[in-house]
Design a protein around this nucleic acid. Structure first.
Lengths: 224, 224
DNA sequence: TCTATGTCTATTGTATACAAAAAGCATGGG
DNA sequence: CCCATGCTTTTTGTATACAATAGACATAGA
């Protein structure tokens, strides 16, 4: 097995299980731990310098998060996402982002709208550079901003979760420069609809946005 | 503390953590463990005849399920649901049931439709009796049937989860006989729209259904 | 040679022991 | 009488010890 450099962010004063959880989650989302790879408790515990107990509890949490799959009496493996899974997840995401943007139409203040446009601009600027992680971050911020404006905590939580699950594939997807223009235009369309407070247009715009994302992620999976 | 009669369904050959998890979840959903109540590890472990380890792991799972809340260095307490939480959850549920019923319009076979109508009828018959649990069960089956027809595993999982979370309040809600007629008619409307394969009507019908549920649950909370 | 069985090892599942921190209570000083 | 401080108790957080099982490998018999 490749020697991953997992390392705890020991700075915080949280229960170890939470620190381990965040560490492993990051490792999975960033691809340090690859789909299909086994998570062995003793191994991880030694690497992280803790005992098995917090590692086990972190794995339980990853399991319910859908990031690992438990095989009874065999342990946890990093979850593979199949094309069919991705389609399912993105379909759900579409419905929820639609709800989010509609609520945002009602709730978003002028200031929030300005911030949103600024975020869209940051995203555009990032695309010109080479830093994929920064692009992804800017895009996440754009969507989170809309989401937060809904004030619906459950919606925020579920959408964050879904975004995290597909994060690795989004990253892959951003490598395709051909789609960059479209992405920028789609974000702009969402901003415009929000400015007009048109739930219909905003919903339509974001559904198109997610749909495109779905197609291009699936395409990039096939190429590999 | 009231002496709850928690008991493991030892029949199955699952890891204890899963058995404990299901047991505690049932206890919370059925109200045996009430909102605000503390879950103490040793106590539960002794009651269930296991050690603390599986109990702890079960609690971690309940935590990510939103059924308990962890207070650092204090332990877990059964989650309270506030009116605002309920509104949030039901808003999300509305969007997802809408998606589900639209997909069902596309996918549902004639046989499935017949089964659905049968389920609606069972629900109607249950309402005439006094068995609230049976009513709730019949209603759950009706919605699950639609959900399963979508073939979207993620959607099925999230909706099941949401339904479970509000189960206790639905039960409370079913006690109000005044709403029974409406419920039956709403189910019928959903069936009709599905038969006509009209996504628009089906979506509208189920959104109304969820919206009514929201109102009457919140009302019944205020009365208490 | 192939298969079946037995043993050994690696790894999870479970229990318990130990550490640390928070809450409650009592006692003493102001 | 009230408040603060320290002790005690309760409970979680963490580590480790022990049990059980699945998988691999080897060996023996057909």
């Amino acid at each position: 097995m490749a020697e991953h450099d997992l390392q705890l962010q020991t700075n915080e004063y949280l229960p170890l299980r939470d620190v381990v959880f965040q560490t492993l989650r990051q490792a999975i989302l960033r691809g340090t731990l690859q789909p299909g790879e086994r998570l062995m408790e003793i191994h991880l515990a030694q690497k992280l310098g803790v005992s098995r107990t917090p590692v086990r509890e972190a794995i339980r949490m990853l399991e319910l998060d859908g990031l690992v799959i438990m095989v009874p009496r065999k342990g946890a493996i990093v979850a593979e996402i199949t094309v069919s899974d991705l389609e399912d997840v993105l379909e759900v995401r579409g419905a929820l982002e639609d709800l989010a943007v509609r609520k945002a139409c009602q709730n978003m203040t002028k200031e929030q709208l300005e911030e949103l446009k600024a975020a869209a601009e940051r995203f555009e600027n990032c695309l010109k550079g080479e830093d994929l992680l920064a692009c992804a971050q800017a895009d996440v911020e754009f969507h989170e901003m809309i989401c937060r404006a809904t004030k619906n905590r459950r919606l925020i939580q579920i959408l964050n979760n879904i975004r995290e699950q597909i994060y690795r594939y989004r990253l892959e997807n951003l490598k395709d420069k051909g789609s960059h223009e479209n992405l920028v235009e789609e974000h702009a369309a969402i901003c415009r609809a929000l400015e007009q407070r048109s739930e219909e247009r905003a919903g339509e715009a974001i559904r198109v946005h997610i749909e495109h994302q779905k197609c291009s992620i699936i395409e990039s999976l096939h190429i590999k």
